[in-house]
Amino acid sequence: MIPVKVEEKLFQNRYRVDAGRPHINIKNPTTCQVECKTQECTVCCPAGCYTAEGNGQVVLITDGCLECGTCRIICTTYRNVDWEYPRGGYGILFKFG
C-alpha cells in the first residue's frame, strides 16, 4: 500500500469555507458510535472528511468536502447523513473540474 495523505491533495484545491455552517451533518452521532459496525463513510469519503475515533465515534469535518455525495448514498442502513448543498458561492470551487 502506498502511503498518501489526502490533505496534501486537498491542499491544491480552492475552497470558500462557510465557517460555522457545515452543509453536512450527522443526524444522530450515537447511531454511528453504537449501532453502525461498518462505518464505510470513514473509509470511502474521497476527501477523508469522516474520521473513526478510538471510542467508535465518527467525527465529521466538512472543510475539504468535494461535494460528491458519496457519504449521503453510502449510508444505506441508517440514513444518518443530513446532506445539503453549501450556500450559494460556498464550498469547493473547482479551477479545472
Binding site: 500500500m1 502506498i2 498518501v4 464505510e40 473509509v43 470511502c44 458519496t70 448514498i73 453510502i74 479545472f96
Partner: peptide
C-alpha cells in the same frame, strides 16, 4: 496537462471498504 482518474461502482467501494484516493495512488 494530463487528467488521470479511476471510477468504480460505489457499492463495490462500500463492500470492499476501499479508499478512493489510495486506489488512484496505486
Amino acid at each position: 496537462s494530463l487528467t488521470i482518474g479511476v471510477g468504480c461502482m460505489l457499492s463495490d467501494f462500500k463492500s470492499q471498504k476501499t479508499t478512493p484516493y489510495l486506489l488512484l495512488e496505486q
